[in-house]
Amino acid sequence: MYLIFFNLQEMPFSLTPNTEFYCALQPHNEALKVLLSALSMSEGFIKVTGEVGTGKTLICRKLINHLEDDYVVVYIPNSYLTPDELRWAVAAELGLTDDDKLNQQALSQAIEKRLLSLSQQGKKVVMIVDEAQCLSWDALEALRLFTNLETESKKLLQVVLFGQPELDLHLSNPRVRQLRQRIGFSYQLRPMTAAEVEYYIDHRLRRAGVDNKLFSTALCKRIAAASRGIPRLVNTLCHKTLLQAYGDGHTQLKTDYIKAAISDTEDCQRQNRWQRWWPLLVMTPALLAIAGIWLWRQAL
């Protein structure tokens, strides 16, 4: 595509979470530090929430890469599971039998036995659940029961939940208050600032092999405003901008390319429409109040 045209070694703005392109920005670094610290203290539940596209899955994969050999990771990328399916998924990640003739009680006992064996070997088991906002009430209860497994001195299983803000709403329900009380650490990912967006864009381009600054500060500010600082939207806009420039045969990026990319990205279009109308919406109550006072005085 435009790799050779811009002297790139690989695609800089792919939407696939790639830890090789991890950018050490404050919100992502803080989230990673919270996770590693909480895991070292053997907390039962740890929670990270953030809007769609803020980098939760990338941090999830970065965390897995950071964990040392004394950790065993049970990774659940698809949380839309029944309690029975969740137990089978955990069993598969722990390398247990796939004999589907086992009843749920026997399966739970096999999982507990495996966790105890790993603990005796000095291993820590961490279950990482991505898209945790999709967990049903029953699945959440099954997760809580997993963390009941413990020795006299420590938990046999720790659970890290990654989810959208809907996860917090889910956990606020009284029916899962027992699980909520077991969440020792939480972190909420925020969008990037304009300065962070510029650093993020430059970082990804450098990682892809470009030394010169393709996106000027002014262009980065436009992208930051349109994307609301959400990394996934930043990637989308930058990719479309490079495509536009490549199609025109220009290595110099123009404002028109950014505008076209924004117009072609639905989530950015909705934001732009709101930005155009919000001053009027804010001013309308004040104007009505002024008109009401004027009419009242005319009636006197």
Rank of each mutant, 00 (worst) to 15 (best):
G249R: 09
L169T: 14
L143V: 00
P285G: 05
K155A: 10
I262W: 08
M192H: 00
K213Y: 04
S263N: 14
I223T: 05
E166H: 14
L295R: 07
G292H: 01
M127V: 12
R114I: 03
F6M: 00
R114V: 03
L253H: 02
Q109G: 04
H239N: 08
G95C: 07
R204K: 03
K154R: 06
R175N: 11
L94K: 02
E196L: 05
R207W: 04
T16L: 04
T54H: 06
A194P: 12
M192R: 03
I293C: 07
C220W: 00
E30Y: 14
R177H: 10
L8N: 00
L145H: 11
N18G: 03
I128T: 03
V282L: 11
N78G: 11
G44M: 07
A289F: 13
L161Y: 00
P174E: 11
S136Y: 10
L167Y: 13
L35Y: 13
E93Q: 13
G122L: 08
A195C: 04
P279N: 13
T193W: 15
L143S: 02
Q181C: 03
V159K: 00
W274D: 00
L135F: 13
G50L: 07
F162H: 02
R206E: 07
T251W: 05
W277L: 01
Q133I: 15
Y2V: 15
T49G: 06
F5E: 09
E51H: 09
L300N: 12
E196S: 06
V176M: 06
F215N: 02
E93M: 14
T97Q: 12
L63M: 07
R114E: 03
L149K: 05
A260L: 13
A92R: 15
Q158K: 05
L171I: 07
D211K: 09
L32A: 11
Q271D: 12
D130K: 10
W296F: 10
E68K: 12
I290T: 08
T265Q: 10
V160Y: 01
I183H: 03
V160N: 02
D69N: 10
I290W: 03
L3D: 03
I183S: 05
D100P: 04
D130R: 12
Q298N: 09
T16A: 10
W137R: 02
Q26D: 14
T49M: 03
L189P: 01
A226N: 08
Q133H: 15
Y2Q: 14
Y246W: 13
K113Q: 04
Q188S: 15
L242R: 00
G50Q: 02
N173P: 04
Q109Y: 14
T241C: 08
V72P: 10
S227Q: 09
A286I: 08
R270D: 12
G53R: 00
Q269R: 15
E266H: 15
D267W: 09
V74F: 08
R190D: 12
Y71T: 06
L242N: 03
I290A: 12
L214T: 01
Q252A: 11
